[in-house]
Design a binder for these strands. Structure first.
Lengths: 120, 120
DNA sequence: CAGTATCCCGCGAGATACTG
DNA sequence: CAGTATCTCGCGGGATACTG
């Protein structure tokens, strides 16, 4: 009886792929991580965030914040007893879970930049 | 690979962000990881890959393969002494470097899916 | 300040056809 | 088989203006 050695089990890889795609779907947008990192840096208010994330429009920022909130990565808090109402977007406890992911991406991105510039 | 240079403070975080964006830029496309994983799974020929990556057109696959090759993640090999010439896209040695990234994304994606489905 | 409403344009990408 | 060439269309997203 012979056994075929595969690079990796197809189904395991497929499952892994689908999870990977989910992650990319949530985190891989053009603005998503920029915004997330602005908030992690303590910039919690709409216009403050917009100032930090250069080039983003109010319309797109609004949509992105809703998406991040739906994914439980940020929490929208309205402080009603303020002169003009204050809205704060705060990192959630759960948002800590993406730190390793950001770390991993960041490390690879850094070495990759070197790799590419060396190759040209 | 790059676009805008930020003139902001917190340079360490900005550098990290920029590396993260570079990684997202390379890996975050709609098809990129699907294709990469198909190749890692041993599907090396154009039409074979296209069959594995459901929904992708030849035009887009062609462009994506060029991008992956430019990023040194795959190698294009032409086997000239075959009746109709055979072209193979093989994983590069360097492509091993993205495994931790895929792993990290995959793990977060899996737990996130559970997190989200529990919250609805 | 914290957004929403329109208008509008470019390009990402699907469909289809064609070539060496 | 391994792509390239058009043609087309939707929508992501920028610009601008407006509101509570």
């Amino acid at each position: 009886m012979e056994e075929i050695i595969e690079p990796m089990s197809e189904e395991r890889c497929t499952r892994s792929l689908s999870s990977t795609e989910d992650a990319i779907y949530v985190l891989g947008g053009k603005w998503t991580l920029r915004i997330m990192i602005a908030i992690l840096n303590g910039h919690t208010r709409f216009n403050d965030i917009q100032r930090r994330v250069l080039g983003i429009s109010a319309r797109v920022l609004s949509a992105e914040l809703k998406k991040l909130e739906l994914n439980l990565l940020i929490e929208r808090n309205v402080i009603v007893d303020a002169k003009p109402v204050i809205v704060e977007y705060n990192q959630s406890e759960y948002s800590r879970s993406i730190r390793p992911v950001i770390q991993s991406l960041s490390e690879w991105g850094a070495t990759h930049k070197i790799k590419i510039s060396n190759s040209h």
